[in-house]
Structure formats: structure tokens, C-alpha cells
Design a protein around this nucleic acid. Structure first.
Lengths: 204, 204
DNA sequence: TGTACATCAGTGAACGCGCGTTCACTGATGTAC
DNA sequence: TGTACATCAGTGAACGCGCGTTCACTGATGTAC
């Protein structure tokens, strides 16, 4: 901030943060370049010194989200080593925790409609996050007898789908859809039943 | 249509259909009242003879979607009776099939951000669809020993979450995210593993 | 330390645009007699 | 069948708005001498 004693200090990051706040409150569509600029105390035109435009700003927010997300999952994965099962479950939980803690990033990443292949930097960040989950799934798949072992990428996809579904359907504060159970419980039990189905948890 | 020989014939429904087409192509945000009017061959102001405004038009599209959705699930449920298991699996599959076949409705229902409690009619339609899935889950839960039987509404939520996640993450034609498996297979195997975890399918 | 200059982050005005919504109206359809 | 009238679906012009983006500019910061 004060290190580079420029006019604003660090407008680029200030804009990203304003965008995240707006995306969180107003949804991926309600976000406006002009309003983000205003919140950062700057003219809309100033944005163009740091970003190519509106989409580029969202992409940067998403990129930062994927980095944080990857760190969070990596941390969960490491923490529960060497138990492949515990590590896998923890990465699943990390998904929901991330969505809860950083809704702006989450929306920018998964609901804004921007492709993760939009820029190489964004694609890299997304790939890194994805690979951690896939690795946890791969570790786990070693514990399943080879002859009835589904591809690791398949059950990482299952867990991702259930996690994402729980977030979208039950962890959003949509006043209408009152969630029947706390989302954390829903995901926890869902993953538990699923893992039992894979033969990785005792039937009782 | 020709029965009521009005100026347009049946503008109300024509507007809904135009809206669905636009929502499908441009996303929930890209949809525009003015453009829907234009596609129906009518001035934007004409819309206000039939709807209170933009949101109301989307809500009607969603309502029609929930009705179709409920019919589809009901049909699937009935078809596979009396097997509670087959019926439940079929309603799960119906979810994905609906999302595939009627993407405009699906988006209006689940991604447009309008609350299903917006109007009583919409709430009714949504409830009806929900109850069918819940009933299939309830039938199924009778086959689980009472002492380790999770609430039916919980595993209907699990299936809903996984289905929704598969749709959002793998069944959208986002060019970047290439799905590792056909969404139908992903959902089928996911539900299969889950049901095995519930002890409803033989372990092998 | 002081002056002249280069850099470039942010300004402010302007643009063209399409939006949702309103309003008094028009004119085709349906109805009463 | 024909005329007078009521209804009301759709018109067209207008509104105020905020948007993303452009442009020549300004003025603070950093640098060379």
C-alpha cells in the first residue's frame, strides 16, 4: 500500500475488493464497473488503467478466489494426511467452508458465467484447485479393490457436484427456500453415505 | 389461439415463450423485457397488459416450468411403481432430463434469482414438484431399517443437490469446463453409489 | 539541495446505447338493440 | 342485418437512468543532472 506511494496506493486491489463486495451483495449480474470504481473512490475511467474492462476485473476476482480455494483445500488435505479418507472428506468440507467464507469469490468463480479458460492465469489457478481434489480422490481410490474401482476423476466429480449443489440450493440466503437441514450437516452426511457406498466406510 | 380472435391471439403465452428462448440463450440476466416483446412482434408497452413487469414475466415462465417438471417426475414415479427403488432413481434421472430438455425453464426456475415464494401460484407449483421427490424418498426410506434410517427429506435433499450440481457443473455448454464424463453417466453412477451407501443396493 | 523533465495514475466530460416503465391514444373486436 | 357503442389489446412517443467505454487533459510522483 504505502510502499508504492502512488496516487491511490493500490487501486488495482482496491477495485478487486470493491467488486467482490458488490458481487456478493448484488449477484454476478448486479455488479457494475462504475459502482466498483465509485466504491474505490475513483472515476470509472480509472479502472481502465488496471483492467481491460468489466469482464477482466471479474476474471481477476475469480483468479484470486481459485488461489485461496486451492490453498484452503491443500491445507485441509495436508492436515489429515496420511489418512486418505480423512483427507478426502476434509477437502470436501473445505468446498462448503470456502463458499461460506468468501461468497464474493465463490460467485465470481462459479456463477459469473466467465469461462475459466478466459485467461491463462485464471486457467492455471482453476487447474491447481481442481488437481488437489483430484489427487485426494486418487489417494482414496487406492483403497478400493482394483476390479471395482471407479476412476478417481469420477468420484471427485461426484463430490464436487454434491458440494456445489448443496451450496447453490441450501447455503444461499434465499428467504423462500428454507433449507431443511444445516448445509454443513447435509454435505457431511451426504458424503458419508456416498463413501459408504464406495465400500470405504463400514456399513454400520 | 384462433379461438380468441384478439389482436395478437395469445400474446401472454407468446411472451412467455419468447422469454424462455431468450433466457436459454442469454442467461437469466441477459433476458430483456423489450427484446421479448420484440420477438413476439409487439411493443414493449404491450407487455404491461399481461404482466406487472419484467420479474413477473420470469416468474410465470418459472411457474410453467415447475408444472412441467412435476408432471415429468410424477410420470417417472408412476412408471416404476411398485418398486420404490426404481421409482426413486427415475425421479432423479428426470431432474437431469428436464434440465436438458427445457433449459430455459430450468434457468428461470433455479438460476434467475427469483424466489419461489414470489407469488402464491409459483410457490404452489414449486411445492408440488418438491413433494413428488419427497414422496419417492419416503417410499424408499421404508426399506431401510428404522433404527438407522435417515429422514426422507434428507436424502431427497442429497439427491437434489447432486443432480443440481451435475447440471450446473457438467451439463452446461461452457466451453472451458469440459466434462470428464457424460452428465447422465455421472449422475447415474453417483446416485448408484449413494444408494449402495444407504444399504439399498447390494454391495456388488 | 534544487531545478527541469518524464512518467503515468486518475480526471471529467462526453458518447451512444438499451433498458424498464408511463401515458394518452387508436383502432379492431365484441355486444346491445 | 345494420347501427351505435363499449371494451380493451396494442401503439408510439417520451421519460430518466445508469451503463461501459473513449479521449484529451492534469497534476502528483519519481528521476536525471
Amino acid at each position: 500500500m504505502s510502499k508504492r506511494g502512488y496516487h491511490h496506493g493500490n487501486l488495482r486491489q482496491a477495485l478487486v475488493e470493491a467488486a467482490l463486495r458488490l458481487i456478493e451483495v448484488k449477484g454476478p449480474t448486479g455488479f457494475t464497473l462504475s459502482e466498483a470504481a465509485k466504491q474505490a473512490g475513483v472515476t470509472p475511467a480509472a479502472v481502465y488503467r488496471h483492467f481491460e474492462g468489466r469482464e477482466d476485473l471479474i476474471a481477476e476476482a475469480a483468479r484470486q478466489g481459485f488461489l485461496m480455494f486451492a490453498d484452503l483445500m491443500q491445507h485441509a488435505y495436508d492436515k489429515y494426511q496420511p489418512s486418505a479418507l480423512a483427507a478426502f472428506e476434509a477437502t470436501g468440507r473445505a468446498y462448503l467452508a470456502f463458499a461460506r467464507k468468501h461468497p464474493g469469490h465463490y460467485i465470481a468463480m462459479f456463477e459469473s458465467g466467465i469461462s475459466s479458460n478466459r485467461t491463462p492465469e485464471l486457467a492455471n489457478a482453476a487447474r491447481r484447485a481442481h488437481q488437489i481434489l483430484e489427487r485426494a480422490a486418487d489417494d482414496l481410490s487406492q483403497h478400493i479393490p482394483a476390479e471395482r474401482r471407479p476412476p478417481a476423476s469420477m468420484f471427485s466429480a461426484h463430490i464436487l457436484a454434491m458440494s456445489h449443489g448443496v451450496v447453490e440450493l441450501y447455503a444461499r440466503n434465499t428467504p423462500g427456500t428454507n433449507s431443511p437441514f444445516p448445509p454443513e450437516d447435509l454435505l457431511e452426511t451426504g458424503i458419508g453415505i456416498y463413501l459408504r457406498g464406495l465400500g470405504l466406510i463400514d456399513p454400520d
